[in-house]
């Protein structure tokens, strides 16, 4: 009888899609008229023209199928183990080539930005994909606040290192802490966001709480989670998967059906959430975000993979 309150119900069972969309309209309407936040949603966010109109995956699919090796290598491990992570208080150290380096508290960061809902396609290097309704703000807003110096060319990111709460860090699966990086023009692109929410709620720990990067035209592992440090630098920073296997994971890691992973094809992907017999769809270059193509003009993307 201990478990009598356990049910098979899912978020989608209590929130039919119609109601869901309604809620989103409500939120948008409330934001537009400067009304109080609707009681249902914890985070108010503006809709964004950068959002796809594709239907997002279910909340429980997005939050139960994660690659987050700090909490284990299994897809279900993060959901099972990330609950113990302390995400309050949280500060992000911004240093390197900036005018205003320092430890920025998360509340302080959020007080200076406008949160938007960004519904993005998410393409994993393992050739599956989802559609995720993030809530976040443009990385460029935070970088502008810190004051990027003219000498800076790259942005380096670091995940929290806390083995007592992140059990995976006790094993040498990757060289911890997890590191990622972007070229400055990629970091400043309006599609690049720092996400703090998902589906109108605070970001769950397994999804990278309290603050994570989302770069929708790159493979998922570029979108580093639980960020504690952002460094502006003039040299290409080391990145975790590239360090682990430089022949398989490049610095850029743009979604590209023409450049295969050495061990598997990237020509197509399986969109998750459409059932057993959904099959595959062709993968699109830059994950369909053609507006970033100009960033790589003159570059051979088979070399800079």
């Amino acid at each position: 009888m201990t478990y009598r309150f356990r049910t098979d119900l899912r978020w989608s069972d209590v929130t039919p899609k119609g109601v869901f969309l309604n809620r989103r309209q409500l939120m948008a309407g409330a934001a537009a008229f400067g009304l109080a936040r609707p009681a249902l949603a914890k985070i108010a966010a503006q809709p964004s023209a950068y959002s796809t109109d594709e239907v997002p995956n279910r909340f429980e699919d997005i939050t139960s199928y994660n690659n987050y090796y700090e909490f284990g290598t299994g897809k279900e491990d993060p959901a099972a183990n990330a609950g113990s992570l302390t995400v309050k208080p949280w500060t992000v150290k911004i240093d390197g080539m900036v005018d205003r380096p320092g430890d920025y508290g998360l509340e302080d960061i959020l007080a200076h930005v406008t949160l938007e809902e960004r519904i993005y396609r998410f393409r994993c290097v393992e050739a599956w994909s989802m559609v995720v309704p993030w809530i976040g703000f443009q990385l460029s807003d935070l970088l502008a606040r810190a004051g990027v110096r003219a000498s800076a060319e790259y942005v380096a990111f670091e995940t929290l290192m806390r083995p007592e709460e992140m059990p995976g860090q006790n094993y040498p699966i990757l060289e911890w802490p997890y590191r990622e990086g972007l070229r400055l023009d990629e970091a400043m692109h309006p599609l690049t966001i720092l996400a703090t929410g998902l589906y109108g709620e605070v970001l769950p720990n397994q999804s990278g709480a309290p603050i994570r990067l989302v770069v929708p035209w790159k493979y998922g592992f570029k979108s580093i989670k639980a960020i504690v440090r952002i460094t502006l630098t003039d040299s290409q920073p080391p990145t975790s998967w590239n360090m682990q296997n430089p022949g398989e994971y490049g610095f850029y890691s743009n979604v590209n059906p023409e450049v295969d992973h050495p061990r598997w094809s990237q020509a197509s992907e399986r969109p998750l959430g459409a059932g057993l017999f959904a099959g595959r769809v062709p993968t699109r270059k830059f994950n369909g975000y053609d507006e970033v193509a100009g960033l790589y003009a003159g570059q051979d993307l088979a070399v800079d993979f």
């Binding site: 094809s265 959904a278 595959r280």
Partner: peptide, 19 residues
């Protein structure tokens, strides 16, 4: 289910992908 009967990609994988 995984390859969705995309024979060209299936055959390419058998030939090209060591695993």
């Amino acid at each position: 289910l995984d390859m969705g009967l995309l024979w060209s990609q299936i055959l390419a994988d058998i030939v090209k992908r060591p695993y």
